Simulated assay, not measured.
Amino acid sequence: MKNWLYLCCITTSLGLTACTSNPTSTLAIQKENQQFEVTGLGKTAILSKNNAIVAANRTCGRNTTIVKDEKIEYKGVLKNVVDEKTGQTIAAATEVLGGIIGTTPTLQRDDDYQTTLSFYCQK
């Protein structure tokens, strides 16, 4: 009976964890003239760009992805409070302070940066 209860608890917690994870990219939106648009999310600008590129390449399959336009936006918790560089400094200082006092506070989230790519697929 105990084993059955443990199994149920583990299954439920795994199921709830899967429901709360954020996607790293959107599905491609097709626009006119065989052009597409995808959005990638990430904790850093580079991660969000990589996630958008992965989604674009997945859309094109075996064809070559040709990027026409790229837009990166910071959408973090400190967006309208301070500029991006100051926000990064505050986030780093918070993590260092948390390490000193033994906690792991973070101001960064997995969707702080958003990269939008407009692209088309070429054979």
Rank of each mutant, 00 (worst) to 15 (best):
N51P: 07
T39E: 00
Q88W: 01
D110H: 09
E95G: 00
I90W: 04
A45E: 14
Y120D: 10
Q30C: 03
N22D: 13
N33A: 13
Y113Q: 11
L5S: 06
K75W: 06
F119N: 01
E84I: 13
S25P: 01
R109Q: 11
A56I: 01
D69R: 06
V96E: 08
Y74V: 05
A18L: 06
R58F: 12
E37L: 12
I29Q: 09
L47Q: 15
T20H: 05
L14Y: 08
K31H: 08
T12W: 15
N50D: 14
A56L: 02
G61C: 02
T86G: 02
N57D: 14
N33G: 09
T94V: 15
A91C: 13
Y113A: 07
V54K: 04
T65N: 06
T12R: 05
M1I: 02
L78A: 08
F119K: 00
L107M: 12
I101N: 10
A28F: 05
A91D: 11
T24I: 14
V67R: 07
D110P: 12
E95N: 07
W4Y: 06
A92L: 15
C60N: 12
C121V: 10
K71N: 11
V82L: 10
M1T: 09
C9R: 07
N33E: 13
I46L: 13
K71P: 00
T11N: 00
N57K: 13
T65F: 12
V54A: 09
G87L: 04
P105G: 09
I72M: 03
